[in-house]
Write a protein that binds this DNA or RNA. Structure first.
Length: 356
DNA sequence: TCTGGGGTCCTCCGCCTG
DNA sequence: TCTGCAGGCGGAGGACCC
């Protein structure tokens, strides 16, 4: 396998700079309200010099750089740019796996026999992306996904890193474990507490050491990846597994009727998305986040799928009531989601009477 | 009065059934 | 009839990703 990983550099911020050239050269943060509860989605490289990064609260970003410009994300605009990028990429490499608006894997082995040719292809891809959209992309090339992804992150912005076959483990060894896909804040804390800071250290753990730090198949998976062992193929996009909507309030909300109204509105939008995809859902889930950031969810699975917004809303509200009966109090977020999705079909009379 | 939104996947537990 | 067990499934929560 020869896999490429393409990552658009500071994508949301780069698009905003293209759309509003007067923002170029200024610290730019795409995200929520710096005076509210928003977080940073993307910061441009000028803003990153102030230590501003993704997922930081916008209030903190403002403290770090009071002269930063804050803009709200324009998802539709980014989707348009993203579609243009991937259309350009497919001109060079037909098989791609989009893992987000701004990144994805490329099956370079489909059109390249060796790594020298794969490097040329990667350069060609960077050029067509720049030509089609004026956006800069970084690319990593390797025999597996985990190496390609770490490689694409290595020389940002606009970099190209090729990991020759047989050098996977040696390439990954010096990087922090946090850069490994699957290692989040929790896993990183556990690994650091055990003295495991780099991927090389993780790769060298014995079975017994691994069991005490990261038990279960997750631990084995992470160690394999740290060793450059990753057989995941390029996968073409499939149907979504769930659809959801949620909202964080500017101030915590106690009023039950307000929460019901919010859920009902969200249920309508979820149902619209379901209908758009020609799907129904059997499982409805209501999610609450309390002021202490703890999350409660309550769900219900129906014998047959539904796509009616009013019905989803009713179920979501009754699940909310159940959750609030278990733990009363104000909440900072409510959301409704549907899963166990099925293709839409006509109900038989028997199913309809059961569902009702 | 730090901490979004929309997803996926994994794990654990309890219940039911054979 | 009772008990133990395994497997499937729903429900809940946690962790992670972009």
């Amino acid at each position: 396998m020869i896999i490429g990983h393409l990552d658009l550099d500071a994508f949301f911020a780069a698009v905003e700079e293209l759309e509003q050239p007067e923002l170029r050269g200024r610290p730019l943060v795409v995200g929520g309200d710096p005076h509210g509860r928003g977080v940073v989605a993307t910061a441009n490289y000028e803003a990153r010099r102030y230590g501003i990064g993704s997922a930081m609260s916008c209030a903190e970003a403002l403290r770090r750089c009071p002269r930063a410009v804050f803009v709200h994300p324009r998802k539709g605009l980014y989707s348009t740019y993203s579609d243009a990028v991937w259309a350009a990429v497919r001109e060079v490499v037909p098989t791609v796996e989009r893992t987000g608006l701004d990144e994805g894997y490329l099956d370079l082995g489909e059109v390249a026999d060796d790594f020298a040719r794969a490097r040329e292809l990667a350069e060609a891809i960077q050029a067509v992306v720049r030509g089609a959209t004026r956006l800069s992309a970084s690319v990593g090339v390797a025999t597996c996904k985990v190496c390609a992804k770490v490689a694409s992150d290595r020389r940002k912005p606009g970099g190209l890193t090729v990991v020759p076959p047989g050098r996977e483990a040696a390439f990954l060894a010096p990087f922090d474990v946090r850069l490994l896909a699957g290692v989040g804040p929790r896993a990183e804390a556990r690994l650091l507490a055990a003295g495991v800071r780099t991927m090389g250290a993780l790769a060298g753990l014995s079975d017994a050491e691994l069991r005490s730090i990261a038990p279960g198949k997750v631990g084995r998976l992470l160690r394999d990846r740290a060793r450059g062992v990753d057989a995941r193929p390029i996968e073409l996009g499939g149907e979504p597994v769930s659809i959801s909507q949620e909202e964080t309030f500017e101030r915590d909300v106690l009023d039950r009727s307000r929460l019901h109204a919010e859920l009902t509105t969200m249920a309508t939008r979820v149902a619209e998305n379901l209908t758009l995809g020609g799907r129904t859902a059997r499982t409805i889930t209501t999610k609450l986040r309390y002021p202490d950031f703890s999350i409660r969810s309550r769900s219900q699975t129906l014998p047959v799928g539904i796509d009616d917004g009013a019905r989803i809303g009713e179920l979501a509200c009754s699940l909310l009531d159940r959750a609030l009966a278990d733990r009363p109090g104000a909440v900072r977020l409510v959301g409704v989601g549907v899963s166990s999705l099925e293709p839409h079909r006509q109900l038989t009379l028997l199913e309809a009477s059961t569902e009702a």
